[in-house]
Design a binder for these strands. Structure first.
Lengths: 143, 143
DNA sequence: GCGTCAATTTAGACTCTGTCTAGACTGAAC
DNA sequence: GTTCAGTCTAGACAGAGTCTAAATTGACGC
């Protein structure tokens, strides 16, 4: 059981409602707006950036709705939460397993190029726990 | 140049001033207190936990001093900043290269057991940047 | 000992991200 | 058209961390 449906950007705006529904997310106007922004391409956006894009697009949603919706999307597997710098969370619409470069100096975030990084000899999780996900972040500084 | 001095816990309280000085950190009463707490053993503490320990030890320092001192210690290489869960930063006094398990459900943080995890095929950092550090966090949930 | 000066510490105001609450809105079912 | 659960909203609130301006410390030269 549990064949995870995966949504791969770019998704056209008119296909967003179906994409949400396919993950069991009830479709509402605000969710479609936010989904359309995230799924336009593979990207990393913070809640604040999502809200700015909403306004730029002439739409809007309250702060609580933006946060609730992003949290819901993450739980449903539409996007991935990235904890990178302690001051805010990013939401990543690239569904593939991949890792990140983070430029500490200017706050920019890049995907690793597709070279096949491998983690070997990963220890088994502590007694009583099970693996959720593995995050690899390579911090870089501007030379 | 730049042979990095490394301080390995446990460090006895009376040896803390020399340890700080050896990293070019000016010795003050507050820094010795905070250093003694962190270096008592290899551990991960948040700023809040450090301040609680200070009070428990009958010492004290203002919030600003705790934050400034922890930031200074991290820049000087005495401890490592760990960004784990977006709501606070941990400071790790284990100087060896190692990775972490984070239990999402209860917020506990463990070091990987010493099994030699290896990351291979790490891509080179983007043009104009150089590698700072690599963080690997394995998120687990309570079964 | 005494003044000077830079570094450090302090309290508390402030900022920012994110959460909570209570009420309003929506739309499907009957 | 009433009901009801789910959703959305504004705005209050919470917690981590930063900033500011003043006070304290302690090293140094006299």
């Amino acid at each position: 059981m549990n064949v995870k449906k995966i949504i791969i950007p770019p998704v056209r705006r008119e296909d967003v409602p179906a994409a949400l529904a396919s993950l069991g997310i009830a479709v509402t106007a605000q969710r479609v707006e936010i989904g359309a922004i995230l799924l336009e391409s593979m990207q990393h956006l913070s809640a604040e950036q999502v809200q700015a894009r909403l306004e730029a697009d002439g739409a809007s949603a309250s702060k609580a709705t933006v946060y609730n919706t992003l949290g819901l999307f993450a739980r449903k597997g539409l996007v991935r939460e990235l904890v990178i710098d302690g001051s805010r969370v990013f939401y990543d619409s690239n569904p593939s397993d991949h890792f990140h470069f983070y430029n500490v100096d200017d706050g920019t975030l890049f995907d690793f190029p597709s070279s096949p990084v491998t983690l070997s000899n990963l220890p088994t999780p502590p007694e009583g726990t099970k693996l959720d996900k593995v995050d690899v972040v390579v911090r870089v500084t501007t030379k």
